[in-house]
């Protein structure tokens, strides 16, 4: 059994590279609290329309009593309800999403909002939208806000491509 010295050196370099990348991930997760959406919150999706939180009148964007902005969205084949939501840039917002049917994905262009939407669970994304980023790729409206598309990015049936909505981002 022998390993060539050059190979040993390369193995050390590889370990260093992999260790650095892993270390960076752990650092951003622990010190900066950057995680993928992972709230593990069960909900009965067959009775979604009867739950107070995702009943029709409660969908859309609301400012909670503690001041946080919460957007509640239902993704159902093949639509996003409500089709359009308006959220402010530059302040922390919370997106809560559920589905009554199959697996969907939610991805908002120009932002880092991306989550799977799985029947039986509530998906939650906490983020702060950067206005400059959405302004670069979105459509500028007369009132100074910017509209970006919201896609379903998980195959959910033959109408999958038609499942999308809009997010209107208002400047701070």
């Amino acid at each position: 059994m022998h390993i060539h010295p050059l190979e040993k050196r390369w193995a050390a370099i590889s370990l260093l590279l992999v260790g650095t990348l892993g270390g960076l991930i752990v650092y951003t997760a622990v010190a900066m609290s950057i995680h993928p959406p992972s709230n593990v919150e069960a909900i009965d999706s067959t009775r979604l329309h009867l739950t107070p939180e995702f009943s029709e009148e409660n969908l859309g964007v609301k400012r909670e009593k503690d001041g946080t902005v919460v957007a509640r969205v239902v993704m159902a084949r093949f639509m996003v309800v409500p089709h359009e939501i308006t959220v402010p840039a530059g302040v922390p917002i919370v997106l809560r999403v559920a589905t009554p049917d199959v697996v969907h994905g939610l991805h908002v262009a120009g932002t880092n909002i991306g989550t799977q939407v799985v029947p039986g669970y509530v998906s939650q994304v906490r983020t702060t939208i950067d206005f400059a980023s959405v302004a670069r790729i979105g459509v500028r409206n007369a009132d100074g806000s910017v509209t970006v598309p919201l896609f379903c990015n998980e195959f959910c049936g033959l109408g999958h491509q038609s499942m999308w909505g809009r997010v209107i981002v208002t400047p701070k």
């Binding site: 892993g22 991930i25 752990v26 997760a29 995680h35 993928p36 959406p37 992972s38 709230n39 593990v40 919150e41 994905g105 991306g114 989550t115 799977q116 939407v117 799985v118 039986g120 669970y121 509530v122 998906s123 939650q124």
Partner: peptide, 15 residues
């Protein structure tokens, strides 16, 4: 980015 798995387990699998 699935909602039904917790962050700690995802981080372990990421490493």
């Amino acid at each position: 980015v699935d909602p039904e798995q917790a962050a700690g387990w995802k981080l372990a699998h990421a490493l």
